[in-house]
Simulated assay, not measured.
Amino acid sequence: MKIAVCDDEKVFRNDIIELLNKYSSENNIILDITEFDDGGKLVASKTVFDMIFLDHQMKDLNGLDTIKSIREKNIETKVVFVSSYSEIVFDSMKYNAFRFIVKPVSKDKLYEAMDSALEISNSERKLIVKDEMYNESIVVYEKDVIYAQADNVYTYIITEKGSYRYPYNLSALEEELDSGGFFRTNRSYIVNLEHINSYDKTGIILSNGHKAVISRGKYKDFNNCYLNYLKRATSR
């Protein structure tokens, strides 16, 4: 998940980044965080971020003008306004702000925003795969993927509707998938946490009855990741 933190005061950027790193560690998900000290630099960035934590009162380009410029590019990034100026909350909604958090940022507020963003992200994210039976490319929603299995230079995506070929290897797929909803259990498997029926130290039984092998060295990380996933799911 690519995240931008934009604030012209380093102390506030550091506070948010520290909380994000804690969230990443506690939930065993990968966050790629980039910081900006100016809204203009954020707008000029060629990276499309999944989520932006954005201050309002900045020296050159304020938060409202920054999000306006981002939306003019037809980019629907989730923007969390972080500001001491609570009166701008209604103005921020004009640009489809995802959340508004008053400084100083609390752990509970940031964690709630991240949990909600991941839940929405899981339901919206898509993959382009190959339907080999009809020799055509189709779109598969990530939430419908039960598991993925390596096959030399390709990867096979398994859903309830069938098996589809992903044109790259399992490592490439791992980078594309939302890290909060999937886990790589060994060299050959990535499983969707939503489709787990049961598991033990030898493997994971998935919703279609398939058993995915889990490496001995990965079991502890998997167990922590899955328990954190269940906590997030039950708190929604």
Rank of each mutant, 00 (worst) to 15 (best):
Y156I: 09
S83M: 12
N197I: 10
N62G: 03
E124S: 12
T47N: 15
V105M: 00
F53E: 06
F53G: 05
R165V: 13
Y229D: 00
K211R: 15
K41P: 07
Y219F: 13
S235G: 09
K46G: 12
S121Y: 03
I88V: 09
E194F: 09
M1E: 01
E174P: 11
T34F: 09
E87I: 12
K103D: 05
P167A: 08
Y147G: 08
K46T: 11
K201N: 11
K10I: 01
C225L: 06
E176S: 14
P104M: 04
L177I: 10
S106K: 13
V43H: 13
L31D: 05
Y95G: 07
F183M: 01
T34V: 14
V191Q: 07
K46F: 05
T202L: 15
M114P: 06
G180P: 08
T77W: 03
A212T: 00
N197E: 10
S171P: 06
A4Y: 05
V79R: 03
N122P: 05
I75Y: 03
Q149P: 04
Y229S: 01
S121V: 01
L227V: 11
A44H: 11
E9F: 14
V153R: 07
P104W: 05
D221V: 08
H56I: 07
V153E: 06
Y168P: 07
R184F: 03
F183N: 01
K201M: 04
M51Y: 09
D50G: 13
